[in-house]
């Protein structure tokens, strides 16, 4: 089933306006299957807004956000879906979802896009194990016969429950928290909470995992462990990742593809090397010195003068 390459998520002409504020302006980029794509930019560039549009927390003012399951994005199918009033369309093994038409929970349940949050949102009063079971809610609800089989304790439900506990335990083992399975999530140290939130998102069976600043507040050692975890999610689980991150060491190390935003506009898009050397990106992050501004103005004047003649 795992096919490398090909677009999994295509964001086209995305615009998000809050009153008079244009948070995101005509943004287009794509996320490739089996890759880690990073969305970076200075504070207030509109990165989290893009995330919220993709995961259904905001409805974009304009634009199309298409996600495909399984196979590379089929353009004719996407065009047909866009022309219809449907939210998703299937043709053979090809299935395309228009995320801007779907409600928040459907995006996770049907299109299989999972996300984490900038300020960790674990269920702090529930144990680590319970957090990971809640993530398997939709599969478990079906297994519990919409609570009827579960209420009478049917064997099929018990088996499904045991399997879900096994899956949760396997993830707890993987993130090194199996010893704290029965502790409330709110009691964990910060770095552990970040990893638990990623594991919880992974247990919704995503094809695309959206991480909002997963390395924020982590020390260098925890950051390195996080990088390793994200790589195994990409390579072993075959899940594509879209992440927002400020920690450039993490971004440059693990990203296959970087998109840079500033003031809601895309200023650069490409491989880590090309983005690192892009003068626009350097200017956005470090600012520009006066000599360069003067040079740019002179260039602009020359262009204008050239046009007017």
């Amino acid at each position: 089933m795992e096919q490398r390459g090909g677009t999994i998520l295509a964001v086209e002409h995305l615009t998000m306006r809050f009153g008079g504020l244009l948070a995101v302006q005509d943004l287009s980029f794509s996320v490739e299957r089996g890759q880690i794509t990073a969305l970076i930019g200075p504070n207030g560039a509109g990165k989290t807004t893009v995330f919220n549009c993709i995961t259904g927390f905001y409805r974009p003012t304009q634009g199309r956000i298409a996600l495909t399951n399984g196979t590379p994005l089929s353009r004719p199918l996407l065009d047909r879906l866009t022309g219809s009033s449907l939210r998703h369309l299937r043709e053979g093994t090809n299935e395309v979802f228009l995320l801007e038409r779907m409600a928040g929970h459907e995006i996770t349940a049907k299109a299989h896009v999972a996300r984490t949050f900038q300020n960790i949102r674990l269920f702090s009063g529930m144990t680590c194990l319970e957090n990971l079971l809640v993530a398997q809610h939709n599969a478990l609800t079906r297994a519990s016969g919409y609570s009827v089989l579960g209420l009478i304790g049917a064997p099929s439900w018990r088996a499904a429950e045991a399997r879900s506990i096994e899956r949760a335990s396997a993830w707890l083992e993987r993130i090194g928290l199996i010893g704290r399975a029965d502790d409330p999530a709110g009691d964990l140290p910060y770095g552990d909470q970040r990893r638990l939130e990623i594991a919880r998102a992974m247990l919704t069976d995503p094809v695309l995992l959206c991480l909002d600043e997963p390395a924020a507040g982590l020390n260098p050692r925890e950051s390195a462990a996080l990088s390793a975890l994200l790589r195994t999610i990409r390579d072993a689980d075959g899940v594509s990742i879209l992440l927002i991150e400020h920690d450039m060491s993490v971004v440059m190390e693990i990203s296959d593809h970087i998109v840079v935003l500033e003031y809601g506009l895309k200023i650069s898009d490409g491989s880590p090397e090309s983005v690192r050397d892009d003068p626009k990106v350097i200017a956005a992050y470090l600012g520009v010195d006066d000599a360069e501004v003067a040079g740019a103005e002179a260039e602009l004047d020359a262009t204008v003068a050239g046009r007017s003649t």
Partner: peptide, 29 residues
């Protein structure tokens, strides 16, 4: 007591703990 141990009961408690996170996990609030 039974419902608390079923997905629906855990979803109720998840809703109480954090509605936005519950929605992000695909739970129909």
């Amino acid at each position: 007591i039974r419902l608390r141990r079923l997905p629906i009961g855990r979803a109720w408690e998840a809703l109480r703990e954090d509605e936005i996170a519950a929605k992000a996990l695909g739970i129909d609030t």
